[in-house]
Design a protein around this nucleic acid. Structure first.
Length: 454
RNA sequence: GGCGACGUGGCGGAGUGGCUACGCAGCGGCCUGCAAAGCCGUGUACACCGGUUCGACUCCGGUCGUCGCCUCCA
């Protein structure tokens, strides 16, 4: 196994991955709150952590990836009320949509996808432990986390508790001992249609506590990598970390790994893609219009920690990259790759081992493609298949499922005859007809062939 | 205001104290009846100002600017 280094948000530096249990890596990635279809920004962590899992497995680790779904939340109550449906019904429908949308990315599923609504016993137990430890208190059916009992609070996101904005949240402000405190449990309210019994009263969990509970349900005492979007670092992950620390006496995560945001708009800087801003593009729409390969190529074309410009132009760039790789793939043969490939494969893997730098890995792929295109001998595809597989682009080596219809083949043959007779007017006319039917004619040394039009 | 990330060639985007990243687009050429695909060649790039150094795009300080978080957010 090579040394793998990842940037840890908590320490602000690259750290060597040293799993708690040798050979096994646990990853917990925060998933979406399901009150609507997910947008492409939500897809980034799904892609990043799915691909990280592939790489770690390639390096010989046994990897368990957990990505939760938040299905109990104020937003869900609000959306359900607006639509006049039950919140459970909406959450179930949107969870199914989330699964379908991420399935379409073609990266497989995480090993576990716990739901908050199915994790209540563990959540209640964790809250009880916090109350027992003096780090939480019940007030009128709510339970709040006592932030100042955690001396390390703020260490993940680099904040000083005493300098934090003391702005009062509207909710529960009068019941909190300290404005910094946050809700672990919220007492049932008249217009909410899901609630569970708990020792301090009927209600439902706060957002942050579910992740601490679900992570320990799968991994026990801590997880090697805990991740999600950088916008979750505070307060969500900070609060998760505090809960686990105060209830269990150990850190929740070894390495905190956060992906950057998608940005929209042209020019220098953009605006974060966000449901609250309303500049979102739904994942299924992107997949339908541009295909999953272009989207994944766009994602791996940037470093996961950096903000990524999203829009038609970046997608078109990515599509161009995809096209070139696919073209090269058409000329490859099955079997081991030539000697020159080893160095490029190593460069590729080293790039991933160095804070999962997929753009540098992709550069190795590009160089591999150039080398293969230059080769006079048939080139074996094995190493390229490994690299593309680790980037989630294995489909680029698959040939088109269906060939052209019989009448188009006949047309192409007619054109070949015209061309042989140097009747170029006819052959060019037929070529246009074929193009209109969605097929490009390419006259190669072995005769013409029909390819799906881009 | 506080904290964090960052400012690289037309666009996107890695990286490094002295040596071609890479992709897309462009230009010239080869190949082709013409295309397409491919190949070859081609770009005074590193926000600004100081400092350290034999040498900085790369280190240090400052300035300006962008983005994120500080409220739900991947």
């Amino acid at each position: 196994m090579r040394t793998i280094r990842l940037y840890d948000t908590a320490t602000g530096e690259l750290r060597t991955l040293e799993p708690r249990e040798p050979g096994r890596v646990g990853i917990y990635a925060c998933g979406p709150t399901v009150y609507d279809r997910i947008h492409v920004g939500n897809a980034r962590p799904f892609v990043v952590f799915s691909l990280l899992k592939r790489f770690l497995e390639h390096e010989g680790y046994d990897v368990t990836l957990v990505a939760n779904v938040t299905d109990v939340n104020d937003k869900i109550y609000d959306a359900a009320r607006t639509q006049g449906v039950g919140s459970e019904e909406l959450a179930e429908r949107m969870t199914a949509a989330y699964r379908a949308d991420t399935d379409a990315l073609g990266l497989g599923r995480p090993d576990h996808e716990p739901l908050a609504s199915e994790s209540i016993p563990g959540i209640v137990e964790l809250i009880a432990a916090l109350i027992e430890a003096g780090s939480a208190y019940a007030v009128e059916g709510d339970v709040y986390f006592r932030v100042r009992t955690d001396p390390r609070y703020g260490s993940l996101s680099g904040r000083d508790v005493d300098q934090m904005d003391q702005g009062e949240g509207v909710e529960g402000a009068s019941r909190k001992e300290d404005p910094l405190d946050f809700a672990l449990w919220k007492a049932e309210k008249p217009r909410e249609d899901t609630a569970w019994d708990a020792p301090w009263g009927r209600g439902r969990p706060g957002w942050h506590v579910e992740c601490s509970a679900m992570a320990e349900a799968v991994f026990g005492a801590g997880v090697d990598i805990h991740g999600g979007g950088i916008d979750l670092a505070f307060p969500h992950h900070e609060n998760e970390a505090a809960q686990t620390r105060c209830a269990r006496g150990h850190e929740l995560a070894g390495i905190w790994m956060h992906n950057g945001m998608l940005e929209t708009g042209a020019g220098a800087g953009g605006a974060k893609m966000s449901k609250s801003i309303g500049n979102v593009t739904l994942l299924p729409d992107v997949l339908a219009e541009h295909g999953r390969d272009a989207l994944i190529a766009l994602f791996v074309g940037g470093h996961y920690r950096q903000p990524l410009r999203f829009g038609p132009d970046p997608l078109a760039d990515a599509a161009g990259r995809v096209r070139r790789i696919r073209e090269a793939g058409r000329r490859l043969v099955a079997g081991p790759s030539p000697d020159w490939s080893a160095e490029l494969l190593e460069r590729f893997l080293a790039a991933l081992a160095d804070d999962f730098t997929t753009p540098a890995a992709l550069a190795a792929v590009a160089d591999w493609v150039s080398e293969a295109n230059r080769a006079d001998e048939p080139v074996g595809r094995d190493d390229l298949a490994v690299m593309l597989g680790l980037l989630g682009l294995e489909a680029l080596l698959e040939s088109a499922a269906d060939g052209p219809a019989a009448e188009l083949v006949a047309l192409a043959e007619e054109r070949a005859r015209a061309r042989a007779a140097k009747d170029f007017a006819t052959s060019d006319r037929i070529r246009d007809e074929l193009l209109a039917a969605g097929w490009v004619v390419r006259d190669g040394p072995d005769g013409p062939e029909l390819l799906p039009a881009p």
